[in-house]
Design a protein around this nucleic acid. Structure first.
Lengths: 214, 214, 214, 214
DNA sequence: GATGAATGAGTGTTCATTCAT
DNA sequence: AATGAATGAACACTCATTCAT
């Protein structure tokens, strides 16, 4: 009775309380400053809870970080299905995938930032488990997609499907990381237009850049 | 006469002294653990100098970090010319570039790790100045290369040169970041063969992945 | 029940705990060695608390110092009333004031030492706020006292009341500061007799030193 | 030949060099911040010399401080004679002394600040030796002056000459210390007029504040 | 006479963590 | 579930000092 209902807090940006408030703030902090750069004091302050309360809920900084990681995972995984890839031809599927994937990354900046940082770390403890879990989803979807395209005779059979997948994902990751810097390059016109970027990307992936020689 | 010969230090990884010793250790530590993860105590211990000496030479942790960044920059920039790209056709130049660029990244893992981490940070102070300086070198080389290919009629004129550059660099960056994870993907066969990766990469960039329809 | 009785701590100099223990030690240290001469390590050790605990309670060295200053203020202010000045004639009131004021200073050596040091500093931030608060109390009491004496025709009307106040307070301050040195002056006989000092002081203030010429 | 003549540097405020430059800066710093508040790094920087050079000339911080103290002493002692006290009557001599003494203090703020700080310290090592040396000069002059006045029947014989001396010096010391604070007291009109202060001071000392009763 | 490099002990401060309540 | 007090270890940084040149 004395306890307030906290059920609907997840919807919208209503100020969560207790455990959830901590988690929400921690996600931001870890994403922005990395594991070592983030501090429990700051997280506690911003979440308007006592520092000791963090330990009550998460046991340790490491524990909190893992909870953040897990939360980000759950937040990321279902997204792939948010706008289902469905098109008759493989080339069209790839175009859609390129578009949707980049959109998702930009919608989940915190999660992506954290994962990429994890990739750069040397621990390899969490790196394998987590990054693999997130990457593999997208990766095997793509590979499967390409394989079907090859079986349908649409994609060249001498193409390594994994290679294609890496190129698409890599282009998106690089865009995500360097978009701030791109804005200061005069040769770049797509810095603020992810849609155009995705289109041009899939175009080159499909047709290559060589002029047709006849 | 009274001065000790330190000549051979430059050659191998012989223990440098004073300022250089600190810088060398700091480069490793910052690359491995990031700015916040690295500690001056550890750096001092490993460099076999007094902690206070770091401040004598670099003023502050920030100062040391900037010196490291600057040093990595100078170490990275001239690399582009280390194995000069020279081939009659543009497609061959791109193939060479893909190869050399990835090799360079793998040879300078510390520098690259640091730069990528910097890209993920929010400072934008160092990000712009440094990442721009390093990225732009490779970037504009590539763009120029593609432009010439277009003028020679070798590359499709409707291709955005910057787009091609981003795809190539992005694929390399992504390979660099995720290679550890790749090793655990069964679909991936190039994880430990950067040479093959570069070849397949440029192949797709040039010809695309679509089957020829005639 | 489970809570320990701490009641008697206030009475004597029993070892206070936590915040109060720190404050008590800090007051001594700052008074004895000044702001820069005092160190938090020493304060923590003597207060038998962890150094970090000081920051938990006071935020910073500056914060602790200000708390000390504030505490000394409250300790000093009510003293004026401790032995209320009450006498029919103004001359008697002045005699009493001279006596009581010097006694108070000698009873609160720590506070006085700190205040005088603060007067010699250049901050002017704390100087104004604090010294003013403490000085003004005594100062305006004296001025008011003299004014009433003038209205009653007891004190010469051409006397500046503020001047008289400064002379009385100044003589006490100087005695406080130099009493150690006075002991080695053969001409001085009042060094260890503050009572005599106060008496002689008010005598001269009232009657002057000139021989009566008639 | 290669060495510049440094002889006349002492005159005027020409930028001294080496030892003298250090001493000049150290005097300011010690006076302003006290022994613990002043740092050799700052002194070295401001004197535009190497920190190690300070040790070359003065051996240690303590050594430098003592040199400063000695220098201030020499600077202060002869001042009493700068404007010789000479008047037929004792009362006039006292008036002159009050005036000259306060002037001297205000002209030598650094020295005075340092000495007063020393008086507040607990070392009593230097306190006795130095403060005594400086104080005693003024003190015994005054006492002697008063004694002669008493012998000449000008000063009341029941006055303790030391007491009169302490009151005069104390009033000046207090003015020196609190003059910044005085400016914010509405009752005080002499804060920026040391001349008036000295006059009023000697007036009260001589004649007292009581109204003439007949 | 003067400097730059180097140092050990110490500074104030912050860290993640624990505990009693 | 939540808090304030407390802690030890570590943090970046400054101190006065030394030494070879």
């Amino acid at each position: 009775m004395t306890k307030r209902l906290t059920g609907r807090d997840t919807e919208a940006s209503a100020p969560a309380q207790g455990r959830e408030a901590i988690l929400a703030v921690a996600k931001k902090q870890f994403a922005e400053y990395g594991y070592h750069g983030a501090t429990l004091s700051k997280i506690a302050t911003r979440a308007k809870v006592c520092k000791a309360n963090i330990f009550h809920h998460f046991g340790s900084k490491e524990g909190l970080y893992l909870a953040v990681l897990k939360d980000y995972c759950e937040q990321l995984s279902p997204l792939r299905g948010s706008r289902p890839i469905s098109a008759p031809t493989c080339r069209e599927q790839l175009r859609q995938f390129a578009q949707v994937h980049l959109e998702n990354m930009l919608n989940e900046q915190g999660a992506v930032q954290l994962f990429l940082r994890e990739l750069l770390a040397k621990d390899s403890l969490r790196k394998e488990i987590l990054a693999k879990g997130v990457l593999e989803d997208n990766f095997s979807s793509l590979v499967q997609m390409v394989r079907e395209g090859q079986e349908a005779g649409e994609i060249r059979p001498d193409i390594d499907p994994a290679m294609l997948a890496v190129m698409l994902l890599g282009a998106d990751v690089f865009f995500f990381m360097a978009r701030d810097v791109f804005q200061h390059f005069r040769d770049v016109h797509f810095a603020e237009a992810p849609g155009d970027y995705s289109k041009a990307l899939s175009e080159i992936l499909l047709k290559g850049c060589l002029a047709k020689r006849d």
